[in-house]
Lab assay of single mutants.
Amino acid sequence: VLKALERTRQLDIPDEKTMPVLMKLLEEAGGNWSYIKLDNYTALVDAIYSVED
Rank of each mutant, 00 (worst) to 15 (best):
L2S: 14
A4V: 06
S34H: 15
N32P: 02
R9P: 02
L26N: 00
D46M: 14
Y49P: 03
L5W: 00
R7K: 06
K24A: 10
L25N: 00
M19A: 02
L26G: 00
Y41F: 10
V51M: 14
D12E: 12
L22W: 01
T18E: 02
E6H: 09
M23C: 10
M19S: 03
V51E: 13
V21I: 13
G30D: 10
D46S: 13
E52W: 15
T42N: 13
L44D: 02
L38N: 11
A4S: 03
K3I: 07
K24I: 05
V21G: 00
L2H: 12
P14V: 05
L44E: 03
I13R: 03
L22Y: 00
P14N: 04
T42K: 15
D46V: 12
K17R: 12
L2M: 13
E27Y: 11
D46R: 14
E16R: 08
K3Y: 07
E6V: 08
L38Q: 15
G31C: 09
I36G: 01
P20W: 11
Y49S: 09
D15Y: 06
W33S: 00
V51Q: 14
E52M: 14
K37C: 14
L22N: 00
I36D: 01
P14H: 05
Y35P: 08
P14K: 07
L44Y: 02
L26C: 05
T18C: 06
I13H: 02
K17V: 15
Y41S: 00
L26I: 08
D39N: 15
S50H: 11
N40F: 06
T8N: 01
G30R: 10
V1W: 15
V21C: 06
R9E: 02
D12W: 08
S50E: 12
D39G: 10
L25G: 01
Q10Y: 09
G31W: 14
K17Y: 08
S50R: 15
N40E: 07
I13N: 02
L25A: 01
M23G: 03
V1N: 04
A29L: 12
E27T: 10
L44F: 02
E16A: 11
K17C: 10
M19R: 04
P14I: 05
E52H: 12
K37P: 06
T42Y: 11
I36E: 01
Y41A: 00
A47W: 04
G31T: 05
G30I: 06
V21Q: 03
D39V: 05
A43Q: 10
Y41H: 01
